[in-house]
């Protein structure tokens, strides 16, 4: 099987690959979002700690 044949998916390439593309995008988003949010939350805690240290 050649690569072009594989990508063509028997004439359904546009449908198959768009479905897989959407899936990869949604699954990646599900992983990236919590990682980014975690960084923000940790930064917030650090900031609060510094403020408290200054006040003390």
């Amino acid at each position: 099987m050649s690569l072009t044949e594989f990508l063509a998916m028997g004439g359904y390439g546009a449908y198959v690959w768009s479905a897989y593309g959407i899936t990869v995008a949604v699954l990646a988003w599900q992983l990236i979002l919590p990682v980014v949010q975690r960084r923000q939350i940790v930064r917030q805690i650090r900031r609060r700690k510094r403020q408290e240290a200054r006040r003390a």
Binding site: P34, R38, I45
Partner: peptide, 26 residues
């Protein structure tokens, strides 16, 4: 991904508790 989101939520809720303040990453 559920565990990741849940631990974020824990940190968000308990961010001003001692254990969270004392985390090495904080």
């Amino acid at each position: 991904t559920w565990l990741l989101r849940a631990r974020n939520e824990v940190l968000r809720r308990e961010g001003n508790r001692r254990w969270a303040m004392e985390l090495p990453e904080a």
